[in-house]
Amino acid sequence: MSRSTLLYYDKINLLKPSGRSQANYRLYSASDLEAMEKISMYRSAGLSLENISEILNSEQTDASNVLENRLLELHREMASLREQQRNLISLLGKDSSLRTTHSMDKDQWVKILRATGMNDEAMHKWHIEFERQLPEMHKDFLESLGCDEEEVKRIRAWSRSARV
């Protein structure tokens, strides 16, 4: 961490040094270093300094709740970014070289599955297993293909109602 970061963390009471030298330099202990590592880890996960302070300085705050809330926030952000991506692709039109570079829609995905020999029954089994093993990831995947909320609900219900 940079000196300015440490000074700022001290100022906001996120990380106080354990002591001071005779020359008034901040001294950090091994437990302070552990706290620095936790702060860095939480920052890399996108947590706000307020949330990090809450986790580190409150005996009542459950880190898993804060982390789960951040994960839900990321899911919402990703869904919004996927929607923006679809809108940009639509605005660019068919002539853009970037139209299909970084995204795949449902039709392209189905075409690839069919080209590998999957029929309707095999695709249904694929959805059933995906929903059974990784339900939230299945939902995210369907959204990433451009399926709207109603279609995602319908596919997931269809996947849960059947057995392999």
Rank of each mutant, 00 (worst) to 15 (best):
M1R: 03
L6V: 08
L7E: 08
Y9P: 00
D10L: 10
K11R: 09
I12L: 01
I12V: 05
L14H: 02
L15C: 06
K16W: 00
G19V: 02
R20P: 09
S21L: 05
S21T: 14
Q22D: 12
Q22N: 11
Y25T: 06
R26I: 07
L27G: 05
Y28E: 05
S29T: 13
S29D: 10
A30K: 14
A30M: 08
S31L: 10
L33R: 09
L33K: 07
E34P: 00
A35D: 13
A35T: 15
E37W: 04
K38D: 08
S40I: 11
S40W: 07
S40A: 15
S40F: 10
Y42I: 00
R43C: 02
R43M: 03
S44D: 07
A45F: 02
G46M: 00
L47H: 01
L47W: 00
S48V: 04
I52C: 02
I52D: 01
S53P: 03
S53N: 15
S53Y: 04
S53C: 09
E54K: 09
N57A: 03
S58W: 05
E59M: 12
Q60K: 13
A63R: 03
S64C: 10
S64G: 00
V66C: 00
E68C: 07
E68A: 12
R70P: 01
R70Q: 14
E73C: 01
E73L: 03
H75A: 08
R76F: 01
R76K: 13
A79S: 10
A79E: 07
S80R: 09
L81C: 03
L81T: 02
R82Q: 12
R82V: 01
R86T: 10
I89Y: 07
I89G: 12
S90H: 15
L91M: 11
L92S: 12
L92E: 15
K94M: 03
D95P: 01
D95R: 08
T100I: 00
S103D: 07
S103N: 09
S103R: 04
M104S: 09
D105V: 08
K106I: 08
K106T: 09
D107M: 06
W109E: 04
V110M: 13
K111V: 04
K111N: 13
I112D: 07
I112S: 08
L113A: 14
L113P: 03
R114G: 02
R114H: 09
A115C: 04
T116E: 10
T116Q: 11
G117A: 07
G117R: 06
M118E: 12
M118H: 14
N119H: 09
N119L: 06
E121C: 01
E121M: 05
A122L: 11
M123P: 07
K125P: 08
K125T: 15
W126Y: 15
W126D: 10
W126P: 03
I128F: 10
E129M: 13
E129S: 11
F130N: 14
E131A: 15
R132K: 15
Q133T: 13
Q133E: 13
Q133M: 12
Q133F: 11
L134S: 15
L134A: 15
M137Q: 13
K139I: 09
D140H: 08
D140V: 02
F141Q: 04
L142K: 08
E143V: 10
L145I: 12
L145T: 10
L145P: 13
G146K: 04
E149M: 09
E149S: 15
E150S: 14
E151T: 15
R154Q: 11
R156F: 07
A157D: 12
S159V: 06
R160Q: 13
S161W: 04
R163Q: 13
V164R: 10
